[in-house]
Amino acid sequence: MIAHLRRSVVSILVFTAVFGFLYALAGTGVAQLLFRHQADGSLTSYGSTLIGQNWAGTPCPGHPLGSCVFHGRPDDTGPYAADLKARVAGGDNPLVANGVPGESGATDLGPRSKVLLEDTRALVAYWHRMGVHPTPDLVTTSGSGLDPDISVQDALVQVPMVSRATGIAPSRLRALVARERQGAELGFLGSPYIDVLRLNEALARLVAASGR
């Protein structure tokens, strides 16, 4: 027993040093050396391409019901039906997805939840007000609450809305969406997607180029 305890104490100190600190610090060193951009959080001057942002509140002069940008999934744009008391996803801050500031997380509402039903109805109504027939991704929240991506279909249904506000022809917007599509990794791992931040950066360049 005493021998076990002595060996335990020695092992704990050595293991904490080697498999905790040495591992993590060496890992950080190598990561910063080889892949600095990724290791720092894939930051651009517009934010991280890996963290979904709030696009629903984006001001769009003269077009209260249009949108000068594509929206992401409701978690990052804030499901416009947030109810923090009931611990329902939402808020406009992208990091209050599950009602706890600064914490990632899903709504955790079950498929037969009345709250989910009401929330989804509110989201569908929101999109209808924007003149969009929403796809499932646009009325459901993601696992992290920070989903940075949407599918091609999710972007295409928003084209009329964006076109109305920006005045850019739908065909040009559809071409933009097609250009921004990222295939599944190696062609088959996961699903194809569009990074909303990159899409909106490209859209902003298009708007600037067309002089509006």
Partner: peptide, 30 residues
């Protein structure tokens, strides 16, 4: 670990990053 970071997993001892996005006027905390 090296492969994961190369794909975009963060690995740093610096604290959360704050970035203001001029596109939608939102400040992100990463």
């Amino acid at each position: 670990g090296v492969v994961l970071v190369s794909q975009g997993a963060v690995q740093t001892l610096a604290g959360p990053a704050r970035i203001h996005d001029p596109l939608n006027h939102v400040t992100q905390t990463i």
